[in-house]
Nucleic acid binder design. Structure first.
Lengths: 218, 218
DNA sequence: TCAATTTGTTAGATTAACATAACTTTATAT
DNA sequence: ATATAAAGTTATGTTAATCTAACAAATTGA
């Protein structure tokens, strides 16, 4: 049985070494920063997690999760995302409120609880941020999050979430007629600077690449 | 902000000094026993809680909650009971499974969460064990509780809750075919030792007085 | 009433998770 | 190539929550 703190280290390591970041190892300082602790503290924990065979770590080297460690990390992420889905869908939390509470709920120890919760939510595959939810075996549809920038001309996609959640950006998004689950058709794209023409509910708009990079779609 | 441990002490003190137990103070050893710690450990915590003005405590004396401490304890109990209701009603947990998981969930810190959960459950007044759920202001309907022992022969009553909530007792209760809201008919009672014959869903069982004393009914 | 039992307290250790300060190793930049 | 910066480590200390062992106070029962 892992402590809350140990679980948080595994989760942080998983995120720091995912496909999205592109890296397969993380540094001690980097890890300490993401967990808001001092490097010395992280160093202590790395030794402990190595002892438990959850990470590969050598003095002055980079750290990565072992197969076992990764498995455990995925289970925590599974719980986190299921709770986020619960908060969003059943308790009327907004997308920006779910994370903080899910950070606490993910540490509740009860396999029955998480299985029943998953069933109650009707086996969702994606959380409110559009991240896919691993199943009980840790298998995860790697629908790696895609931004609007990656959608080919002529195709239509659905808005899942935004990367930058600032009020100013959200207002801009709404001005273009977009909301959660909006269908977006990519009409044209300039090779020069990535500026795109998109169509939402029959309404055409021109948006910059920076804008498109901030929209996650499926 | 209280630690999980501090919250558990307040909760234990509340239960040890409730109307049901009849007492208004608790001893150090008694408290230690219910929390599964050594008296020395409880003693340290009592000093700390006194410092925080959550309990009244004097060296070699008995302990009781202050108004502030009681208020906090009730909020924890409110959370516990709402989570139990959620597990029972929404996640298909059985009667005897809810407590253990609720012990963990009750420590989640988020007033929004508990308000939304209460709304989602449609403002329940009673948890799956029949204990009333305090509202956001800490107000609680104190229903006069009657035990099965007090029901006259020939009468039928409804099971509301149990006095001893241990898993082993709850399993025994279920074995007799009893569940929340079960109708119980008292068929016979021996004057000698109080042993009763009862009927639940047409099924007859013989139960001891001790057993009957543990069942609250209306 | 006073010796025995129960109850409560103190002192001193331990463990997990953090910190600071001083140090060592590795990376980098001209 | 090597001085400097960045990254990582070690030693030491703190706090919260636990323990054991020894001691002190309060209760009780003959």
């Amino acid at each position: 049985m892992l402590s809350h703190t140990e679980e948080n280290y595994l989760k942080a390591l998983f995120h720091l070494t995912s496909e999205i970041t592109g890296k397969s190892e993380a540094g001690t300082n980097e890890l300490a920063t993401t967990l808001n602790v001092k490097p010395a503290t992280a160093n202590d924990m790395l030794k402990k997690l190595k002892e438990k065979k959850l990470i590969s770590y050598e003095k002055y080297g980079k750290t990565s999760l072992t197969a076992t460690g990764k498995k455990q990390a995925i289970q925590i992420i599974r719980k986190h995302r299921l709770w986020e889905t619960f908060l969003y869908e059943k308790l009327e939390f907004t997308w920006d409120e779910v994370h903080e509470v899910a950070e606490q709920l993910e540490h509740i120890q009860s396999s029955k609880l998480i299985e029943k919760l998953e069933k109650f939510l009707n086996y969702p595959e994606v959380d409110p941020h559009g991240d896919s939810i691993p199943n009980a075996n840790g298998e995860m549809k790697t629908r790696a999050r895609k931004t609007l920038t990656q959608v080919p001309v002529g195709k239509t996609c659905k808005l899942v979430t935004v990367k930058d959640g600032s009020a100013s950006f959200l207002q801009y998004v709404m001005k273009v007629g977009l909301g959660l689950s909006s269908k977006i058709k990519v009409v044209t794209r300039q090779d020069f600077d990535g500026t795109m023409e998109i169509e939402v509910d029959g309404k055409k708009s021109s948006v910059s690449q920076k804008f498109a990079d901030n929209l996650y779609v499926v």
